[in-house]
Amino acid sequence: MTGAPVTVGPHTSVAEVARIMRDRGLGSVLVTDGDRLRGLVTDRDLMVRSVSRGGDPEDITVAGACSDDPVTVAPDDDLDHAVRLMREHAVRRVPVVEDGRPVGVVSLGDVAMERDPESALGDIGVARPAT
């Protein structure tokens, strides 16, 4: 699990979220309303659900680009449970939520590193993206 997830509010512009992802080398951020998880947005979501539709990315909020009601796991759930959910819902990232509050994210790269740190996916999962 990646702890201390990066979060943004639902009224944050997609341009600001893209800058956060770029500056921190992230492929996703969590969308929260107060301290409660509202959704998850990936770099692909930003492109497909907002930028491709036109309009000014400074004026479009992330609320329309994020996946509402994401599949989640609890901190004490085992890795196999997270993997099952990823398969069932065809997702690559699952927020870890405790009492409605996000505390981390389990990604496909995390799973690969845990199961086989020498695998190509494990290597890719821990590599810092080029900026």
Rank of each mutant, 00 (worst) to 15 (best):
V29N: 04
P95W: 01
V106S: 02
T12V: 15
V103D: 06
P10W: 05
G104A: 11
R38H: 07
V14Y: 10
P102V: 06
R49M: 08
E58D: 15
S28R: 08
R19M: 11
R36I: 07
G100N: 09
V94W: 02
G9A: 15
V29Q: 06
V73Y: 02
M86F: 07
V48P: 00
G9T: 15
H81L: 14
M86R: 06
A90Q: 13
L108D: 02
A18F: 00
G9D: 14
R101T: 15
S107M: 05
V83W: 09
E88C: 08
R44N: 08
S107E: 06
E88I: 08
R44T: 09
S28Y: 09
T61Q: 09
D99M: 07
V31W: 03
T32C: 15
V83A: 14
S28D: 13
E88K: 12
R19T: 10
L26Q: 09
V17M: 01
D56G: 02
E98G: 09
D45V: 00
I20Q: 05
T72A: 12
P70I: 10
L108H: 01
P102S: 08
R92C: 01
L37K: 04
D78R: 13
R22D: 12
S50T: 06
L85T: 05
D69L: 07
A74H: 13
E88M: 12
T7R: 04
A18P: 04
L30V: 11
P5Q: 04
M21H: 12
R101H: 12
L30C: 07
P102N: 08
T2D: 14
A90C: 08
L79M: 05
V97K: 03
V48K: 10
D33S: 12
A65I: 02
A82F: 00
V51R: 05
G109S: 11
V111E: 00
T42Y: 01
R53K: 14
R84I: 09
D56E: 05
V97G: 00
A63F: 09
L85P: 00
R49C: 06
L30R: 03
L79Q: 01
S52V: 11
V71E: 04
V17T: 02
E98A: 14
R36T: 12
V103C: 07
G100K: 07
A63L: 13
V94S: 04
D56L: 04
V8K: 02
M47D: 01
G27P: 05
L46P: 01
G54P: 05
D80P: 05
L26I: 09
V6M: 15
L40A: 03
V17H: 01
V73D: 04
D33C: 05
G55A: 02
V103E: 03
G25Y: 08
S28L: 11
D99R: 13
E16C: 10
V62E: 04
R53A: 13
P5V: 01
H81A: 15
V103H: 07
D77E: 13
H89T: 11
R87W: 12
D78N: 14
T42L: 04
T32W: 06
